[in-house]
């Protein structure tokens, strides 16, 4: 199958990320770029959503538990038609709706305000319970960072999601291997991620998080799995798409200057 239109859209999303963070002068490019293909797959193929009716009943919901990657969600929502592209360029500025970490009451399409790590994942579990109680067919997708897995609440939430058989919940771990202070393995080893989730009673799928074929197949596998939640462990590269940012922990929370941004945008070949 030809995934070039998704690859181009992901390049557009990444371009939005770079433009917004460069305009803000601060932000988190590394983890926004690593998640761009997953987020693109969700908003442009996987999820049942309607940009003209963001609160549509029965919709699928996406929660960015790694809220510091807000720019990737803002860029994807803008490209999907939730709001104007230029709005996103007010990121992190005083009075902007586009907060440093997403606020559900200020930006249409944001389902949960996140930023304090681990909480979006736990809230997603709650939404999955709520939807089941209401007979709502919507599925809940939640994206976590790998460093985020160091938060204790993540494992509390993993336990309860399996306990309550939340098969309408699909978590994705953006497994880029890096966090602010360096490699996960050096800072606080979270591996083996797959074995941990298996032990907690989850259906586990491990994929290349930059391969649309694998991403789509994983979402299908998640939907087919009944009786337990699914986690997709997506191997990714921090800073993906911008060669000088790739696999560099230093680009976790640093904005490119004008020159770097120009080079990044040129390399990405996207439009935003």
């Amino acid at each position: 199958m030809d995934y070039s239109k998704f690859e181009q859209m992901a390049a557009n999303v990444r371009t939005g990320v770079i433009k917004a963070i460069a305009a803000a002068g601060s932000g988190h490019p590394g983890g926004s770029l690593s998640a761009a293909d997953i987020v693109t797959a969700l908003y442009f193929n996987e999820m049942n959503i309607d940009p003209s009716n963001p609160k549509m009943g029965g919709r699928d919901r996406f929660i960015l538990s790694k809220g510091h990657a807000g720019p990737v969600q803002y860029a994807a929502l803008a490209l999907r038609g939730y709001f104007r592209h230029e709005d996103v360029l007010t990121l992190r500025k005083l009075g902007s709706n586009f907060q440093g970490h997403p606020n559900m009451h200020e930006v249409p399409g944001i389902e949960m305000s996140t930023g304090s790590l681990g909480q979006g994942f736990a809230a997603a579990g709650g939404m999955a319970i709520g939807c089941k109680l209401s007979g709502d067919p919507g599925r809940i997708y939640v994206l976590l960072g790998d460093g985020e897995l160091q938060e204790g609440i993540v494992w509390e939430a993993a336990m309860s999601a399996a306990h309550y058989h939340l098969d309408n919940l699909c978590a994705i771990v953006d497994w880029n291997g890096l966090q602010i202070d360096g490699k996960n393995d050096d800072v606080m080893k979270v591996a083996p991620i797959d074995e941990k989730f298996k032990a907690f009673g989850w259906n586990v799928v491990v994929i290349n998080g930059h391969d649309f074929g694998e991403i789509f197949s994983a979402f299908d596998a998640a939907k087919a799995c009944k009786g337990k939640p699914t986690v997709i462990i997506a191997k990714t590269h921090k800073g993906r798409g911008v060669s000088f940012m790739e696999d560099q922990a230093g680009w976790h929370g640093k904005a490119p200057n004008a020159e770097e941004a120009e080079a990044a945008i040129k390399e990405l070949g996207g439009e935003f």
């Binding site: 736990a122 809230a123 579990g125 709650g126 319970i129 609440i153 509390e156």
Partner: peptide, 14 residues
């Protein structure tokens, strides 16, 4: 901690 975050999630479904 999970209970209160999950409570928020349930509440946000109405």
């Amino acid at each position: 901690t999970n209970m209160y975050a999950a409570a928020a999630g349930i509440a946000h479904t109405g």
